[in-house]
């Protein structure tokens, strides 16, 4: 379980958990679960397109994730963010369906892209993931205060001269970065559970933003490590474990905070 090809899986899993746990706190603060679900789904089209022209699916993800994130931000900047998200996601997926119909991809490979594959990570992809994750963490550190303030009150932020529209776009790019890192391992359909479940559970327990990030990372790490191990042992898809364990954390945290009241 810890040798050979699995080394990459553990390494990438760890990277993904850290970065998703940190960024997820802002996802939950900003009520951005739909966007975080939509961007990875949209990036699926990129992966399908990449396999069509014979390049690594990570390249496709890296192109389509920011395109999806920025179109959601741009078209939804005045109002109806949810409607625009639904439409952008659907359109990108339609493109994905088209690319699939052109290619001779096996169902198993498409399945892996949608629901995750711990064994599919090459060395090159590992280094790319590490680089992207580093960039995402650096971006969070740099944007930390404006990101937090705009999440609390756009008006108070505007009075301090923050352009919340700009911060929002930067946040979407951040989501795209995490997407590119995480989708090859966790899959396009279930990546968002890592960015919603652990932070939602963490915030029920911890009161400060930094503390919530730390606990959220810890929960994400446990979730992903357990999922990788279980997926390796049972041979069942990792997405199954990530999705159900993520939901279980939220239920447990809700029960915990209900008991304390």
């Amino acid at each position: 379980m810890f040798s050979g090809i699995m080394t990459n899986a553990w390494a990438v899993g760890t990277i993904v958990a850290v970065v998703a746990g940190v960024v997820g706190v802002f996802v939950v603060l900003r009520s951005a679960a739909f966007v975080v679900h939509g961007v990875p789904l949209s990036s699926f089209a990129g992966a399908a397109g990449a396999s069509l022209i014979g390049v690594s699916s990570v390249v496709g993800l890296a192109v389509f994730a920011p395109v999806a994130a920025l179109s959601i931000g741009w078209f939804g900047r005045r109002r109806r963010r949810d409607v625009v998200t639904a439409l952008v996601v659907a359109t990108m997926l339609g493109l994905g369906a088209l690319f699939l119909s052109w290619s001779n991809e096996y169902a198993a490979q498409i399945y892996a892209l949608l629901f995750g594959d711990v064994l599919g990570v090459t060395d090159a992809e590992l280094w790319l993931s590490a680089g992207l994750a580093g960039a995402a963490l650096l971006a969070v550190a740099v944007m930390y205060r404006p990101l937090l303030l705009t999440s609390v009150s756009a008006e108070a932020a505007a009075a301090r001269g923050i352009r919340s529209g700009l911060v929002d776009m930067l946040f979407l790019v951040l989501v795209a970065l995490v997407t590119t890192t995480a989708v090859p391992v966790v899959g396009a359909l279930l990546m968002f559970t890592l960015m919603v479940g652990p932070p939602a559970a963490a915030r029920a327990v911890v009161r400060s933003p930094i503390g919530a990030m730390a606990l959220s990372v810890a929960i994400a790490l446990v979730t992903l490590w357990a999922s990788i191990a279980a997926s390796y042992v049972t041979n069942w898809p990792i997405g199954f474990y990530v999705g159900t364990i993520g939901a279980a954390w939220v239920l447990a945290a809700r029960a915990w905070s209900a008991l304390r009241r």
Binding site: L29, R145, S208
Partner: peptide, 25 residues
């Protein structure tokens, strides 16, 4: 602000000092 948002009163006040700044503090 949602009741379970992880943001204490002191965090909000600290954002009043330099909440508009980018960069690590």
């Amino acid at each position: 602000i949602e009741p379970d948002a992880p943001l204490r009163a002191r965090d909000l006040v600290a954002l009043g000092i330099d909440g508009e700044r980018f960069g690590v503090r």
